[in-house]
Design a protein around this nucleic acid. Structure first.
Lengths: 195, 195
DNA sequence: GAATTAACTGAACATATGTTCAGATCAAAG
DNA sequence: CTTTGATCTGAACATATGTTCAGTTAATTC
């Protein structure tokens, strides 16, 4: 049972996923070859198959891992009883979480169609689970008379689309800091659903 | 000068673009081969090169055509002086226009990274031109004291992201009609920027 | 130092890719 | 009917693809 400690496997495995994520984000899943990924890691293409059964699983594992991270990070948040506080919490969490991993966000959105149907269903289920959390907040706010939202499901989709959009233009070196952007978006979200 | 009238070219040319658009939307630019496109048209791969110098130009022409359509359709709209009316007009126009051509919208968003840098710059310029129109409406509304928007550029990006998001979930056979969806989104946009 | 075995190489496999081009086809013009 | 030229075929080109696998390398254990 040699090679358990200091094994390259602990190093190479993550590096494969990192290289795949970066390349998929930059060029798209279909446009990236296993040889490119291997080259980025400094290894021959065949060696990748010690870490993934095939290219499809590599993509799926990235998306799956991202969605797991999202739901886990979300679950670790305090969940205020007050709907307004919960909505603010969700808004700021979403912007921050997505800002911190732009490549995973991008790939998770762009490469859904390159998943096999079964894999797609799994990712889609996790995504729906996240969306439902926002929908629940909105419904509670409506019930308590704090929000004026005729269609909580649609409002949830609209808010998430708006918030995720930050990733398309925000730059760390830009004029505005992330907390400032958070503030601006929270203002719009709050007003958009206000009673 | 034979073959000018009733020429197949008038038929095949558009069919090539239609097939390419449909296939690019479904499978992504990189995953679609010239032979697939040709097969869809009922022709051999070599024949496609009577209608496009290469695959890249085929993609570019689709995106270019879509952006031209967008700006032209927008220019054909009445442009109300009243900022609130102008914003409502923009909101409804955006939802309707994007609803009517989901494939072109999808491809225009997803395949930007598969453009050469020069082609990308052109499309990006057209896109900015469209965004600026919304930004101008918001600025005018602020000047006239009708809107409360600290960052018109960012608000414009947020509104557009929100509106374009309709395409990701809306189905014609769904519970809500497009006019109903228009109404819901217009309500959220109006409140989000209201003074 | 010998044995073990995880980690990796390098070549091979069958198939697919974008693009080119000489030649066949055939509708229209003279 | 003959000429013309746009339209398309079918094969070829060089290169790239995902994946497999027998064999090499080298870190660890005994």
């Amino acid at each position: 049972m040699a090679r358990t400690q200091g094994s390259h496997s602990d190093i190479t495995g993550p590096r494969v996923r990192e290289a795949a994520l970066r390349l998929f984000a930059q060029n798209g899943y279909a446009a990236v070859s296993m040889r490119q990924i291997a080259g980025e890691v400094g290894v021959q293409a065949g060696a990748l198959y010690n870490y993934t059964p095939d290219k499809q699983s590599l993509l799926f594992d990235l998306l799956r891992g991202h969605m797991d991270d999202l739901l886990q990070a979300r679950a670790a948040c305090a969940q205020p009883d007050d709907p307004l506080a919960a909505l603010e919490q969700f808004t700021r969490f979403h912007i921050r979480f997505h800002h911190d991993r732009p490549e995973a966000v991008f790939v998770s959105y762009m490469e859904l169609r390159n998943l096999t149907p079964e894999n797609f269903e799994i990712i889609e289920g996790l995504r729906r689970c996240y969306e439902d959390q926002l929908e629940d907040i909105l419904r509670r706010g409506v019930t308590e008379g704090r929000f004026d939202v005729a269609e909580p499901k649609i409002a949830a989709m609209a808010v998430i689309a708006m918030l995720t959009g930050v990733n398309t233009w925000f730059r760390d070196e830009g004029r505005l800091s992330l907390p400032e952007v958070e503030e601006i978006y929270w203002g719009m979200v709050r007003k958009a659903v206000a009673a």
